[in-house]
């Protein structure tokens, strides 16, 4: 039954980050728990059977949104709703806000955290496409020190990350300076509007300078073992004059960037079709926002 978390799992509630890092370093077979909208379910169903769980969701020092020199710094246990409600995010990283708007529903958004969404490393992670577009940097800390991991190197496979076993994600850094004055768009398809797990989502940013596309970044989830950038599409567009033809032509190339599977939610063919369609729509919408189309 799903009433309780199994009793053979020992829960520990550290008082601060330092204690959390020491515990994770010292213990074997340990999981860090933040919001719990994924992990609590996984503990109940037995998908994960750690011996220890270290609860970091209550660590206030990991809950903040700061603007610093062209980058946003978001504490790992900041909730999705806090990101959605944040004026700084709306102003500096509107694409991230757009993705959180379509993230599950109220009750989940109030609990789920941005660090948890990334560390859960679902191919369908909702915050991954916008963060891939911003080329976010993940700060990982351990008792040994801290290091910065570019988000493109963070996901290693379904439910697998680049984190070492003693490391915790403590902060997500979102550089936005390069993408100011660009057009953005986010599209997500699920079985139910904005609620269900993504079947395909596309995040897009386009910058037009001197009549040509000077920067374009596209990222998708749920169409590969990890959330991916659409480099083939991007390469075709860069330096080109925006037109319907080039959008049409380039969006078809997204199939070379993705490797979807058939599962309970959708077959391959549908995901490929929707990836192409959403890529086209995302490019159109983003270009419209730049005012050139």
């Amino acid at each position: 039954m799903m009433y309780v978390i199994p009793e053979d799992i020992e829960f520990i509630v550290p008082v601060d980050l330092r204690e959390a890092l020491e515990l994770i370093n010292k213990l074997n077979n340990v999981k860090a728990l933040a919001g719990g909208t994924d992990l609590v379910v996984d503990l109940k169903t037995g998908r994960f059977k750690p011996k220890y769980v270290v609860y970091i969701g209550g660590l206030k020092e990991l809950r903040y949104i700061r603007d610093n020199n062209g980058s946003l710094h978001i504490g790992a246990v900041t909730t999705i709703q806090e990101i959605l409600d944040s004026k700084i995010i709306a102003e500096k990283a509107p694409l991230l806000r757009a993705a959180t708007e379509k993230f599950a529903y109220w009750q989940i958004r109030n609990t789920a955290t941005i660090g948890g969404n990334l560390c859960n490393a679902s191919p369908a992670a909702d915050t991954a496409p916008p963060l891939l577009v911003y080329e976010a940097i993940i700060k990982a800390e351990s008792v040994r020190g801290s290091r910065l991991i570019p988000i493109r190197e963070f996901f290693k496979g379904p439910r697998q990350t680049a984190l070492e076993r003693d490391e915790l994600v403590t902060e997500i850094i979102v550089p936005y300076k390069d993408l100011e004055n660009s057009g953005y768009s986010y599209f997500k398809v699920g079985r139910r509007r904005g609620y269900d797990i993504s079947l395909v989502a596309v995040a897009c940013v386009v910058k037009v300078e001197g009549g040509v596309i000077s920067d374009v970044r596209l990222a998708l989830n749920s169409v590969a073992p990890i959330p991916v950038r659409a480099m083939n599409v991007e390469k075709t567009l860069i330096g080109k004059k925006p037109s319907l033809e080039i959008i049409e032509e380039s969006s078809k190339l997204v199939v070379y960037d993705i490797s979807p599977i058939s599962d309970v939610r959708a077959p391959i063919e549908y995901r490929q079709y929707m990836a192409k369609l959403l890529t086209r729509e995302a490019l159109l919408e983003a270009l419209k926002k730049t005012g050139v189309m």
């Binding site: 969701g57 009750q107 109030n110």
Partner: peptide, 18 residues
């Protein structure tokens, strides 16, 4: 669903310590 500090959350996923 219950309200915690006025915000809706799911009691089946929320730890009491939280």
């Amino acid at each position: 669903t219950v309200l915690v500090n006025g915000e809706p959350v799911l009691a089946c996923l929320t730890l009491t310590v939280d």
